[in-house]
Design a protein around this nucleic acid. Structure first.
Length: 501
DNA sequence: CTGTAGGGTCCAACTCTTTA
DNA sequence: TAAAGAGTTGGACCCTACAG
């Protein structure tokens, strides 16, 4: 994911806190948050080591885990952000609801920063659930702290699937986190949903986090490749559906999701946010997908297809490639000879398109094409193009052909059947047509026959449309507009009952 | 009876939208 | 991005009503 210009700033060795560092950080934060971190009973013993270094997939915590103290901020964030080079983004929300970026860095950098510390105990401070990387293109300085900040959209690791169970209780009404969580966990067990790794008391509701592990290296979170983002989003949506009856927030599944910092204040409920370890498990996307009945597309597409392709789909599929094939032939005719820099591309693409459009004797067709339009290519070069075309299994976009064949705007205009101008959407066209028909029906002194309407549309509006279509439109309009009752009778009952106004 | 006008139904082809 | 499904379109054919 990191390009050469976007090398991470932080080495993986620096990422996880040592016990001494964590102890130091916790001391500072305890001092900062006072008694909010569980009454000062926490020690950084093996029980409270950063969870990233614990053995994976061993459910050690029996039950909801509320007997334990809440996790300290560093413990909680270390448990979530455990990927190599992972950076955490910290943001706060202003009174107007705008997001302000405070800092981006490793947990050590963030929690030991003198600049950031005063803000961590503020109201409504958040951290990104998924790790970002140091993208130089999005590198900025925070206006508040002066620290480096990066966009939370440049994701490096997907750390968790989260569900926000917002109780939306009335102002003044008490939210009982413990009993609510117990109900949620009981429901999870009944439904066969694995216990979440972390539960968060956000003050006005409860968040559930299932922490993620890469299937190849379970000590690492899931890399934020587009495919993984996609599946994690789908799992998130499925989880939301599962917990709908508990008020799951339907919008809380995007990978850039932020969560309140442990120990920070929720200004809406005027309470501290607390994180609880429910289980020590980390889940691969496959495990979580199975639990929430979400499967990778590849495993679903195949069974979804029933039997052979439909008879209508075959010509449709062929047409997909015949259009650019006709286009490239027309382009060749137009140019007479392909200029240097496009000859091999032209021969290669011609071969690919011939194969995909099921042209008979591709080799002969390509040889003739190259001889006529790319005469300077050697036989060996043409054969190489033919050979490469056999390896082509990827989709080829019109844009790619346009770029490689250096098709100019002027040529595109001539090749209008290939490079179609974007048409207004079907819905737009239909709504426009309905508008015209409605207007004509209202204008008419008496009944207008469907055939007459077809003529009116053609002559008056330059719109060519079939009689059947107009008839259906008129029926639809009269159904929705009883005021046009006369027309309704005419259209729906035919000539027998036609009533002339 | 025939020709004309007009609506309904069917169906293949096409286009757009949704889903994974 | 491909595939599948849904929706739209328009031609062919059928029917009825009416006028001459």
């Amino acid at each position: 994911m990191n390009t050469k210009s976007e090398q991470p700033l932080h080495s993986s060795e620096n990422l996880l806190c040592s016990e001494a560092q964590i102890a130091d950080i916790d001391e500072r934060l305890k001092a900062l948050h006072g008694k909010c971190l569980g009454g000062g009973s926490m020690t950084l013993t093996s029980q409270l080591l950063p969870v990233a270094v614990r053995p994976n997939s061993v459910p050690v915590t029996a039950g909801p885990g509320l007997a334990q103290s809440p996790l300290s901020p560093s413990e909680a964030i270390n448990a979530i952000h455990r990927g190599g080079n992972a950076l955490v983004s910290i943001e706060s929300k202003t009174e107007s609801g705008a997001w302000v970026r405070l800092a981006t860095g490793t947990t050590i950098e963030l929690f030991s920063s003198e600049l950031l510390q005063p803000h961590l105990s503020d109201a409504d401070v958040y951290f990104g659930l998924n790790s970002v990387y140091a993208s130089y293109r999005s590198r900025r300085k925070s206006k508040i702290t002066g620290m480096t900040v990066y966009s939370r959209k440049h994701l490096q690791h997907l750390n968790a699937v989260a569900v926000d169970l917002d109780q939306a209780h009335q102002p003044g009404q008490q939210f009982h986190f413990r009993s609510f969580l117990e109900r949620v966990l009981r429901y999870s067990q009944q439904e066969g949903i694995p216990l979440p790794s972390i539960a968060i008391n956000s003050g006005r509701g409860c968040w559930l986090l299932w922490l993620l592990a890469d299937r190849r290296d379970q000590s690492q979170p899931v890399p934020a490749h587009p495919d993984c983002c996609n599946i994690v989003k789908r799992i998130g949506r499925a989880a939301i559906r599962k917990f709908e009856s508990f008020g799951a927030d339907r919008h809380c599944y995007d990978p850039e999701r932020v969560c309140r910092i442990p120990g920070s204040i929720n200004s809406a409920s005027n309470s501290r946010v607390q994180f609880y370890r429910i289980s020590d498990r980390y889940f691969t996307t496959a495990e979580l997908g199975t639990a929430f009945d979400v499967h990778a597309h590849r495993t679903q597409i195949t069974p979804r297809r029933t039997g052979e392709k439909g008879a209508r789909q075959i010509p449709g599929g062929l047409e997909r490639w015949r259009v650019p094939l006709r286009g490239i032939r027309a382009l060749a005719e137009m140019r007479r000879k392909f200029p240097q820099g496009t000859r091999r591309y032209a021969t290669y693409y011609y071969a690919v398109l011939c194969r995909r459009a099921r042209v008979d004797n591709v080799e002969q067709a390509v040889m003739q094409f190259a001889e006529k339009y790319c005469p300077t290519l050697t036989l060996a070069q043409v054969k190489k193009c033919l050979h490469s075309s056999q390896q082509s299994h990827f989709h080829i976009r019109h844009d790619t052909l346009m770029r490689d064949l250096k098709i100019t705007t002027k040529e595109q205009e001539v090749l209008s059947l290939w490079f179609k101008k974007p048409q207004p959407s079907c819905a737009t066209k239909i709504s426009h047509r309905h508008k015209m028909i409605r207007a004509e029906m209202e204008l008419a002194v008496g009944a207008v026959s469907v055939r007459r309407m077809v003529d009116i549309l053609k002559i008056k509006h330059g719109l060519t449309v079939g009689r059947t279509t107009v008839a259906r439109d008129m029926q639809k309009i009269t159904r929705n507009r009883p005021a046009l009752g006369v027309m309704s009778m005419v259209v729906s009952q035919g000539m027998q009952t036609m009533v002339h106004a």
